[in-house]
Simulated assay, not measured.
Amino acid sequence: MARQAEAEREKRAKIINAEGESLAAAALGDASDTMMAHPLALQLRNLQSLVEIGVDQNTTVVFPAPLMSTIGELGSFLARETAAAAPAAAAPPAGTGRTDKSLSPAGSAPGTAA
């Protein structure tokens, strides 16, 4: 009877472990999709890993990074961000365009004598 209970506990533990692995794999797949859509996300994650390594120990880490491709990706990212921000900056904010004339040709306010 004790062996049966122990086998049942092991069975539940394996099922729970497998469910956890499945959830972890799904989360890694989502992260991979995000990094494919945003190439700089992988570079930022690599830099974050370096920060985490440096916090634990005072060490020097040699981390190979494709410098030229990273610079190119950063340039294209900044160009996209600038292009996305340009239409918003070019349009005047709502409510600031004046269609009425608040001053008369003489330079005084309407309804007052010049």
Rank of each mutant, 00 (worst) to 15 (best):
M1D: 11
M1W: 04
A2S: 12
A2D: 12
R3L: 15
R3F: 09
E6G: 06
E8Q: 15
R9V: 11
R12Y: 13
A13L: 15
I15F: 01
I15W: 02
I16Y: 00
I16R: 15
I16C: 06
I16M: 09
N17T: 11
E19G: 04
E19Q: 15
G20Y: 05
E21G: 07
E21P: 02
E21T: 09
L23V: 09
A25T: 11
A25K: 14
L28N: 11
A31K: 10
S32K: 06
D33M: 02
T34H: 03
T34P: 04
M35W: 04
M35N: 07
H38N: 15
L40Q: 05
L42I: 01
L42R: 08
L44Y: 05
L44I: 12
R45S: 14
V51W: 05
E52G: 02
E52F: 01
I53Y: 11
I53L: 12
V55P: 03
V55K: 13
D56E: 06
D56H: 08
T59K: 00
F63M: 10
P66F: 05
S69D: 15
I71D: 04
E73H: 04
L74S: 08
L74M: 12
S76Y: 00
F77M: 02
A79R: 10
R80A: 14
E81V: 15
T82E: 12
A84D: 15
A85I: 04
A86N: 08
A86K: 08
P87L: 12
A88E: 13
A88T: 14
A90D: 10
P93T: 09
P93V: 11
A94E: 14
T96E: 13
T96Y: 00
T99I: 09
T99W: 05
T99H: 11
T99F: 04
S104D: 00
S104K: 04
G107W: 01
S108A: 13
P110E: 09
G111W: 01
T112S: 06
